[in-house]
């Protein structure tokens, strides 16, 4: 069994430590939720794990082949349509982009009527749905998802939860941040929390 190992990662901004020696491990098939107050470094940790932000020190050992990072921002090109963005993502991840599959995936998240519009005109909720379409299209080995439930309406939230349930059922490895501890309890197999720059494992009750 392979696992993502993080050892003593440190990162500071303006010479103030945000992450002060974070160590943890994510095993294959773990669904981990990450909690923490605003500004506690959740996003920074996710960005470091996905290689967007550099760490100051520490070790990250990532044996997972394909990592998909879905950040807080939409992460798509505003001038391109959802379908073009999806096709681009497929190319970047070395997958073939079958037109039917793209349309079908977009229909699954309720974007079938918006697939040709530039992403700039879509609402925050629609862009959030687009992230779920990406997550279901790309064949990732590990998913890092920052605030998956942000900006979604009730309908969107239950859609998102059903995505998480199906990932749990098929034993996917993922790490996501969420403020709602009750929902995390439901969707995650493990809970981590960042406090004062360090990481704590929360016992699941």
């Amino acid at each position: 069994m392979i696992s993502l190992e993080v050892t003593d990662v440190k990162k500071s901004f303006f010479r103030k430590p945000v992450l002060d020696g974070v160590s943890f491990e994510i095993k294959e098939r773990d669904a981990v939720s990450l909690a923490g107050a605003n500004g506690s470094g959740k996003t920074t940790l996710l960005k470091i794990l996905s290689g967007i932000t550099s760490k100051d020190s520490g070790e990250i050992h990532n044996p997972f082949q394909k990592l998909l990072y879905l950040g807080h921002a939409p992460g798509v090109y505003a001038g391109l349509s959802p379908i073009e963005n999806m096709r681009l993502k497929c190319n970047l991840y070395g997958q073939s982009s079958d037109e039917h599959l793209l349309v079908e995936t977009l229909s699954d998240v309720g974007l079938e009527n918006h697939k040709k519009k530039p992403c700039r005109v879509l609402s925050q909720g629609m862009l959030q749905r687009l992230k779920f379409a990406t997550a279901s299209l790309i064949r990732w080995d590990i998913l890092l998802f920052d605030e998956p439930f942000a900006a979604l309406d009730e309908d969107g939230k239950s859609l998102a939860e059903s995505f998480f349930r199906s990932w749990n059922e098929s034993g996917k490895t993922l790490l996501f941040t969420d403020h709602d501890s009750e929902r995390s309890l439901d969707l995650a197999s493990r809970q981590l929390a960042i406090e004062d720059g360090g990481l704590k494992e929360r016992e699941l009750s």
């Binding site: 500071s12 901004f13 303006f14 010479r15 550099s54 100051d56």
Partner: peptide
């Protein structure tokens, strides 16, 4: 943005 990036 911040000193660490300025350094790089």
């Amino acid at each position: 943005e911040y000193p660490e990036r300025a350094a790089r």
